[in-house]
């Protein structure tokens, strides 16, 4: 597990180092160091530390959206006034690891890790978030839904670095909910689900749904969203939506739960999230 360590002073330097290959990026390191030290992944030639890069720091209100530096620790985001406008995201961040972990682990890190059960992913997907990537060929932004490609796999090209997460502010009257099930505290989710929608005169609008730990990637439940748009919130609607949501996902069975249980829970969580819109308990 011998590797070198280098801490570039700017994004430009980091990009030129990353372009040389044989390296891995380290931000918070809470996943990477465990994997390296427990020999769950081969040691890279060197670690490039990006956690202190000024270009990846800071939380900024840009008017229509919130720009969160990729290396912002989860605890900093939770302590920021912006979290009050993003309750589903705040709820997800609050269950990620312990406080000691959240003081270090970064938002960009958890997304680039691309765990199917990453708790921050469903709320960000439901909020319609994007990610900003910098690479040898310049900068690009990508819808977060396009970013995840498989367990541990992302759209990042060799030499690319995630610089920011871009979260559009939810419109007035939009509510957001996050539901999650795990075996014990600080455990990876068995199932998680986030929902953003408006509800006026019992009619749904702007429905965006996302689920975690029920497919190779955290994903939007598109067919269910399309069905729900403009529908009245009734028991029949909920039953039909739950059925569609169960078809929208592709879970596996593992030590945290069976595929059947996960599918079932997606439907249950969806109904709870939508009922919460009418004052029901999520």
């Amino acid at each position: 597990m011998g590797y070198d360590y280098i801490r570039p002073a700017s994004l430009e330097q980091a990009l030129s180092l990353a372009a040389q290959g044989e390296s891995a990026l380290i931000a918070g390191g809470t996943d990477l160091l465990v994997a390296l030290h427990k020999k769950k992944r081969p040691a890279p030639g060197r670690l490039i530390s990006i956690r202190s890069l000024p270009e990846l720091a800071g939380i900024r209100d840009e008017g229509a959206r919130l720009r969160i530096g990729a290396a912002v620790p989860l605890a900093d985001l939770l302590a920021h006034p912006a979290q009050a406008r993003l309750p589903a995201l705040a709820k997800a961040l609050g269950v990620m690891g312990s406080r000691q972990i959240r003081n270090v682990a970064t938002l960009g890190g958890t997304l680039c890790n691309a765990s199917p059960g990453a708790d921050a992913a469903p709320p960000l997907l439901a909020l319609g978030a994007g990610v900003e990537l910098a690479g040898p060929a310049g900068r690009r932004t990508l819808d977060l839904a396009e970013f995840f490609r498989g367990p541990g796999r992302t759209a990042l090209q060799p030499g690319e670095i995630m610089t920011a997460v871009l979260v559009p502010w939810p419109g007035a009257g939009t509510q957001s909910h996050f539901l999650r099930r795990s075996r014990v505290a600080m455990d990876i989710a068995t199932v998680s689900l986030a929902a953003c929608f408006g509800l006026t005169n019992n009619r749904l609008s702007g429905v965006r749904l996302a689920a975690g730990a029920v497919a190779p990637v955290p994903l939007r439940l598109r067919a269910t969203e399309t069905f729900l748009e403009g529908k009245a919130l009734t028991d029949e609607t909920l039953a039909e939506a739950a059925k569609l949501a169960r078809a929208d996902v592709a879970p596996i069975s593992d030590l945290r739960g069976t595929a059947w249980y996960r599918r079932e829970l997606v439907g249950v969580f969806l109904a709870r999230a939508l009922r919460a819109g009418n004052g029901g308990k999520p």
Binding site: R7, G29, T30, H37, K38, S49, G97, Q100, N103, V104
Partner: peptide, 25 residues
Amino acid sequence: MGTCGCCTVHINGKAKLSCLTLALE
């Protein structure tokens, strides 16, 4: 491996896990 909290120290005033922190950081 970052689960038990036994190695908690303060780094610049914040509680962090010294087992998940490279010394050079």
